[in-house]
Amino acid sequence: MSPYIIETGGLTRSYGDICALKPLDLQVPEGEWLSVMGHSGSGKSTLMNLVGGLDRPTGGTLQVGGENLLALTEDGLARFRRNFVGIIFQQHHLVPYLTAIENVMMAQYFHSMPDEAEARHALERVGLGHRLKNRPGELSGGEQQRVCIARAIINSPKLLLGDEPTGNLDHKSTIMVMELLKELRGEERFTVIMVTHNQDVAAWGDRTIHLDDGMLVREERMNCQ
């Protein structure tokens, strides 16, 4: 068993002539919190999509949790995502006509089967026990993001991906969300990969890599804060 949860070798992704990700070798040990930084268009979102099984690389090798993502069919990738990955988006992407708890239960439904008690518990854990029956439109940005977190962790993923999860939040909410993530990570022991261009947010991680124009340009290791 490899100690790394993610292993890439010469990973590339190009859209036509544009090369979004130049050959990249990356290893992420299990349990690490990795921050990915870079300007927009630097390939950081592409990297996250590849690792999360949302997109397919055009070259190289990609092993996530011992699974060769290049060999999976479309449905295989869907199964990989539901069993292995939790995703938090910048725009939250909650289904507008479902209540908070239903949004969480939908993830349960696609994973296996819905369980309302468990979904309620998950929302209580992110501090939304009082807003179960509210639709996303009735929630603040921070609350929406916390629903999104509850949805991402409900299926106990090994890998949590965050695509600028705090990009739309004010400072106070950002701190709240990051604290929450840290706390949950302490309990659930998932690996975190977080894309951000905010130095402060990146500092929450164990390690930060900087991407520029699809290439890894710098890597820094944080010490415990």
């Binding site: 949302l54 479309e74 449905d75 869907a78 199964r79 995502r81 539901r82 069993n83 990955v85 995703i87 992407h93 289904v95 939908m106 993830a107 696609f110 994973h111 949805r151 299926n155």
Partner: peptide, 11 residues
């Protein structure tokens, strides 16, 4: 979104 959180074609 459904696809991203793991719905396959059948679902």
């Amino acid at each position: 979104l459904m696809k991203a959180i793991g719905a396959d074609r059948y679902q």
